[in-house]
Computed example of a mutant assay.
Amino acid sequence: MTDSLSLEHFGEMLGHLYQGPLESVPWNTFLDSLKDLLSSKYATFILRPPSQYVDGLSISTAGSSMEVTSSYHEHFYSLDPFVDLPNRQVVSLIEFVSVNDWLNSDFYKSFMEPTDVFHVLGADINTPDGAQCRIRISRGRNDPPFSQVDKDLLTLFLPHLERAVILHMRLNRMESERNLYAGAVDQMAVGTILLDSDGKVLQMNRVAEQLVQEKDGVKLVGDGLQVGTPRDSQKFRQMIKQALLSQKSGNPTVVEAMRVQRPSGRADFGIVVRSVPPGEWSGARQCPAVAIFIGDPEQESRAPQEIVRALFDLTPSEAQIALLLANGLTLDEASDELGISRNTARAHLRSTFSKTGVTRQTMLVRLILRSVATLG
């Protein structure tokens, strides 16, 4: 530890660094602290360097504007001489470029001088799984150049920054996958509710939120769920209890199902309750323990017409007929919905049969609902 950084201050900054992936603007607090520690104008972390194909992704301290960052990505990154540094090594700009060359470069004159950036300290981090990161610390023309002490200070944080980047990438990947799968379940019109180990609601997807808001057979009471009649709710609680016992004991996943009548008289819900296998080292109480899936026959298929057309080579009219049938309408109801005669609807249906290779209406409905069209 250097003389200018106490152990307590170092620990505080490490806390900001590892908290960085959870911030709305990643590492914003850490960068501000680093800027102050190194008495600099700007601290910038480039998480994804720009290229001729994609814009870069960078986080800067409050001193640098979005316009400056955008300008760098769009126009000046290809002129920047301070790139491709030795991996995990802190170096200063003057080790790369002479002062005279720097002052006369187009990059300095067009981009750095207007923002009063002259001294730059930096490091590149290339992680084993492919992340390319850059951290740059900048001072003005009249500020002192970066010293060896400054380089040593930044070096202290590099291994921790690399670990935090790896955590960020993994969290980001998991979040992307979660959003993808959640979107797929939404498209299939299935309500999904996750409960924690105390049986309290952790999360609901959009379909489940809509069903709960309607309070027509399923509603939220406090942090828990109530379904159907008191007798239904008793059975439902017993199913959840059994799933929780299974989850806590590490037994094979329990899956149970029930039907729930709706007070409005609309079609019954189908509810499936299953335990969620715990992670090997999961210790938090607020981890998913039980998943509840609610099937609502009243929900229409969300297969986009354009996707159905492309998958089965249908005309717009044929795709409309097919989707209306998939949503539970009869051929007569579909023809009324589209304002066409029954004979015209039959002609479209025959053509659809020919293109899809099915011979009955029920087979067509099954084909559409089981295809990837509902994920479009």
Score class of each variant (00 low, 15 high):
T2H: 11
S4T: 12
L5A: 06
M13D: 03
G20E: 02
L22A: 11
L22Y: 13
E23I: 00
E23S: 01
S24E: 12
V25L: 08
L31V: 02
D32R: 04
L37W: 03
S40N: 09
K41A: 01
F45Q: 01
Q52N: 14
V54M: 08
G56F: 04
E67T: 12
T69W: 08
E74K: 14
H75L: 14
F76N: 07
F76A: 02
F76D: 04
S78W: 14
L79I: 06
F82H: 14
V83F: 09
D84H: 15
R88W: 09
V91N: 06
W102S: 00
W102V: 02
F111W: 10
M112Q: 10
T115I: 12
V117R: 10
V117L: 05
F118H: 07
H119I: 05
N126Q: 09
Q132W: 12
R136S: 14
N142Y: 13
P144G: 03
P145F: 06
P145T: 00
F146W: 10
Q148A: 10
V149S: 14
V149H: 12
L153E: 11
L158S: 00
L158K: 00
P159M: 02
R163E: 00
A164R: 00
V165N: 01
L171F: 10
R173K: 15
R173A: 14
E177S: 10
Y181Q: 11
Y181L: 15
V185E: 13
V185H: 07
Q187H: 13
M188L: 15
V190Y: 10
D196Y: 03
D198A: 07
K200N: 15
K200R: 14
K200L: 11
L202G: 01
V212G: 01
E214F: 04
K215G: 04
K219H: 08
G222E: 05
G222S: 01
G222M: 02
D223H: 11
D223G: 07
L225Y: 05
V227M: 01
K235P: 03
M239H: 15
I240T: 01
Q242V: 10
G250A: 04
N251P: 01
N251W: 12
P252K: 03
V254R: 06
G265L: 05
A267H: 09
D268C: 04
D268G: 02
F269Q: 03
I271C: 01
R274M: 13
G279I: 00
P288D: 04
A289G: 05
I292Q: 03
F293V: 00
E298K: 09
E298W: 02
E298F: 02
Q299C: 12
S301H: 05
R302P: 12
P304Y: 06
Q305N: 09
I307T: 15
R309D: 07
L311P: 08
D313S: 15
T315E: 15
T315Q: 11
P316T: 13
P316A: 11
S317L: 14
A319I: 07
A319F: 14
L324G: 07
L325V: 13
G328D: 10
E333L: 02
D336T: 10
E337I: 00
L338R: 11
G339M: 09
S341W: 07
R342P: 12
R346P: 07
H348Q: 13
H348A: 12
S354G: 02
K355H: 12
K355F: 10
G357Y: 04
T359E: 15
Q361L: 13
M363L: 11
V365L: 05
I368H: 06
L369K: 13
A373C: 10
T374C: 11
G376W: 09
G376R: 08
